[in-house]
C-alpha cells in the first residue's frame, strides 16, 4: 500500500505517549521524520529522556498502528541528531496537558537555558485553579519528565511537565 508522508503523520497522531495519554508522539516531538518508500515506511524517533521506558512502547505502537492502516514494511529508527526539547511541543499539546491536570512546560528562556543555578525562582501555574502560588515538592516525579508540585491555593498536588 502506498501512502503519502502526510497520511502517515496523520495516522501517527493515534499513537499516544503511554505515560501522558493525551498527547501524540507527533505532538510530543518524538517523531522526527517519516520517509515513505515505494513499498516501505521508516519513522525516525528521538528519545525524550535517555532512560524513558515509554520509548519502546511508543516504538511498538508506531509499528502496530501503521500496520493496521495497511502498511506492511514498517521500520522505526532511533536518531540522536538533535536532542529532544519541550520547545517542540505545540501550543495545542500544551493545552491538552493542562486540561489533563499536568502543568505544561515553561519555555526554556523562562527557565534555565544554559546555567546550572543552585536556587531557582520559577513560577509554575496550578493546572486546576490557575494560581501562581505553588510549591515544588520534588523535582523528580512519577516519570522522568515530571516534577511534583502542590498548589497553595486549592491545595491540590499536581505534576509539572519539566522544561528541558
Amino acid at each position: 500500500m502506498v501512502a503519502t508522508r502526510e497520511q502517515v503523520l496523520d495516522w501517527l497522531h493515534e499513537v499516544k505517549d503511554p505515560e501522558v495519554p493525551v498527547v501524540s508522539v507527533v505532538e510530543l516531538g518524538v517523531v522526527r521524520d517519516v520517509v515513505v518508500g515505494p513499498d516501505s515506511v521508516r519513522v525516525d524517533i528521538t528519545p525524550t529522556y535517555s532512560g524513558c521506558p515509554a520509548m519502546r512502547v511508543m516504538e511498538d505502537e508506531i509499528v502496530a498502528t501503521l500496520q493496521q492502516h495497511g502498511m506492511t514494511n514498517v521500520s522505526v529508527r532511533t536518531v540522536f541528531n538533535e536532542p529532544w526539547t519541550t520547545e517542540w511541543m505545540t501550543a495545542a499539546a500544551r493545552e491538552k496537558l493542562r486540561a489533563y491536570g499536568i502543568s505544561p512546560p515553561l519555555h526554556l528562556q523562562d527557565d534555565h537555558p544554559t546555567l546550572v543555578p543552585l536556587r531557582r525562582n520559577v513560577v509554575i501555574a496550578c493546572p486546576f485553579c490557575g494560581s501562581h502560588t505553588t510549591t515544588l515538592r520534588s523535582e523528580f516525579g512519577s516519570t522522568a519528565c515530571k516534577a511534583i508540585y502542590t498548589c497553595n491555593e486549592c491545595r491540590q498536588p499536581f505534576d509539572y511537565f519539566k522544561a528541558i
Binding site: F80, H112, E139
Partner: peptide
C-alpha cells in the same frame, strides 16, 4: 556525529543531576 548526539542528549540530564546533587 552519533557520539556528539548522544552526549548532547545526556548533557541535558547531567545539568539537572548536578543541580540536585550539588544542592
Amino acid at each position: 556525529a552519533t557520539l556528539a548526539g548522544i552526549a548532547a542528549k545526556a548533557l541535558k540530564e547531567a545539568k539537572y543531576h548536578v543541580r540536585h546533587s550539588a544542592g
